[in-house]
Write a protein that binds this DNA or RNA. Structure first.
Lengths: 229, 229
DNA sequence: CCAAAAGTGTTATTGATACACCCATGG
DNA sequence: CCATGGGTGTATCAATAACACTTTTGG
C-alpha cells in the first residue's frame, strides 16, 4: 500500500490475462490476493505502470515476475476507467492478454500475491474488482483474433498434431468443429510444415506432427493473404 | 499549462477522432494548436481525464465543448503509452473515435484551440505528437467495424438514399463497391425502412429515401443475426 | 482382437462476384 | 432531347457445411 499511496489520486495500471491451454481447456493464470480489498479473492495479475516504462512493457514485466518468461505474444484489449471501479482511488487500467505455452513455465507467486494457479476460463464465477468483466472482454477478443490471426500456436508446444490444434480451437471458441473441414482449411493455408515426426507411446495410431511456419506467414501476409479459420 | 502542471509526472488523457462525411469523403475534425509544443500544428482534440469523470465521458465532453452535441456514437480504440510519446512528460492517452452527422454541428474552437476544421482523412500528411499514428489506428478500426456493425448511419442524415450510403462506405473503405451487390446485401438485411419520401429538386431521377431501423437491429442481434457488408 | 484416436473425399448448399441496360427528372 | 444519377436480375464461381468409414497403434 505504500507504493500505491505515491501513485494515488490518479494511477494507471495494467492487468494481464495470461492464457494457457491444458486438459483440453482454455485456462487463465490467476493470483490470490493477500490484502484488502478483496483479500483472498482470485484476481488478474496486474501492476502499476512505472513512470519510466512503456505501457506495453508493463504486462511483459508481470509475465517475467510471475512466470519468468520473455518474448510472449501480447495484445492490448481495452482500457477500463470508470471512476468507481477501484474502491481505494482512481485507477485506470489497461487490459492485455497474452498467450503462453504452459509446458514452458512454472508460475511462482510474486511479491504481490499469495498464490498463483491456472483456472479454467469458462468455469470462473467471480473475481476481485471488475476483473471478471476484464476477463470476459479478453476472452471475446481472443475468440475474434484466433479466427483471423494464427496466434493459437503460441499456446501449444512447437510440435503438435492437427487434433491437438483442433481441440485448442474448440476450447477457445467453446464450440465443436468438424474434423475434416478443420484440417482441410488449416492445411490449405500452407502455414504448417510437416515435422517429419510422429507421436510416440500412444495407444492408438500416432499422429503426424507439424510446426507453424511464422516466416512463411509473414511473407504471405505481405502479399495480401488473410488467415481465416 | 497551469492545469497540466497539476497532472504531470503521470497524466492520462483521451484523444477523440471525430469522423464526419462530407463532399463524398471521410473527414475528421482537427484543432489547430495555439501553444508549444507543436504550435500551429493540426492535432486531434484531446483532454485530460478529470479525477471524478468516467473515462468514457471524457471524449463525450470534448464533443460537447467542440461541437455542442450529445448522444454520439463512440468507440474506444487503443491506448498509447510509450514513455517518449509526449515531449513534456508522461502522458498515456486513450484513443476513441466518434461518428457524427456534420449537418447537425458547427464546431467552434474551444478554450484549448485556435481553430477547428474538417480535414479529408486520406489527405492528412502530418499531425502533432503521435496523432497521425492514432488517427490511422482509428481509421483502421472504423474500417473493420463498419463491415460488421451498422454504424455508418451515424454519419448520415436520418433519411438517406442507398447511393448516399454507398458513397459513404466507399469513402470509409477507400475502395469502389458494386452498386447492385451493395444494394442487394443492404436491403436483404431488412434494417432499412422505406421513408416513403423521394429526393426533391435533383436534376435526375429522384432517389428513394430510407432510414435505419435501430430497434429492429437490436431485435435481430439478440436472435443471433450478424450485420455484414 | 479390442479400444482409441488418426486420417481421408465427395456432394449440396450458400454466398460472393461480375456485369449492362432502362428509367425518371430538371434544365 | 440531353445529361445525370437511380434502379434492377442473372449466371458463374468460390467457399462452406454436412457427413462415415478405414487405418494404425498399444494393450
Amino acid at each position: 500500500m505504500q507504493l500505491l499511496d505515491n501513485y494515488f489520486k490518479s494511477a494507471f495500471s495494467v492487468d494481464n490475462v495470461i492464457f494457457g491451454f491444458g486438459s483440453g481447456k482454455l485456462q487463465v493464470l490467476l493470483i490470490k490476493r493477500g490484502e484488502e480489498p478483496y483479500n483472498d479473492f482470485w484476481a488478474l495479475p496486474g501492476a502499476l505502470v512505472h513512470p519510466d516504462e512503456d505501457l506495453d512493457d508493463a504486462p511483459l514485466r508481470i509475465l517475467r515476475e510471475l512466470a519468468s518468461i520473455d518474448n510472449v505474444f501480447l495484445e492490448q484489449v481495452h482500457t477500463f476507467g470508470r471512476v468507481d471501479r477501484h474502491p481505494q482511488g482512481r485507477v485506470i487500467t489497461v487490459a492485455y492478454y497474452s498467450l503462453i505455452n504452459k509446458d514452458e513455465v512454472s508460475p511462482k507467486a510474486a511479491s504481490f500475491a499469495n498464490e498463483v494457479a491456472w483456472h479454467n476460463v469458462f468455469e470462473i464465477q467471480s473475481l476481485a474488482f471488475d476483473h471478471l468483466e476484464i476477463l470476459n472482454s479478453c476472452v471475446a477478443q481472443l475468440q475474434n483474433s484466433i479466427k483471423i490471426k494464427p496466434i493459437g500456436f503460441e499456446l501449444l508446444p512447437e510440435s503438435f498434431s492437427l487434433s491437438h490444434l483442433q481441440t485448442l480451437y474448440e476450447a477457445i471458441l467453446n464450440t465443436a468443429l468438424d474434423k475434416r473441414n478443420f484440417r482441410k482449411k488449416m492445411l490449405s493455408m500452407k502455414l504448417l510444415v510437416d515435422d517429419l515426426l510422429y507421436q510416440e507411446g500412444v495407444p492408438h495410431r500416432p499422429a503426424k506432427l507439424f510446426r507453424f511456419d511464422k516466416d512463411r506467414y509473414e511473407t504471405l501476409k505481405k502479399e495480401g493473404f488473410n488467415f481465416q479459420i
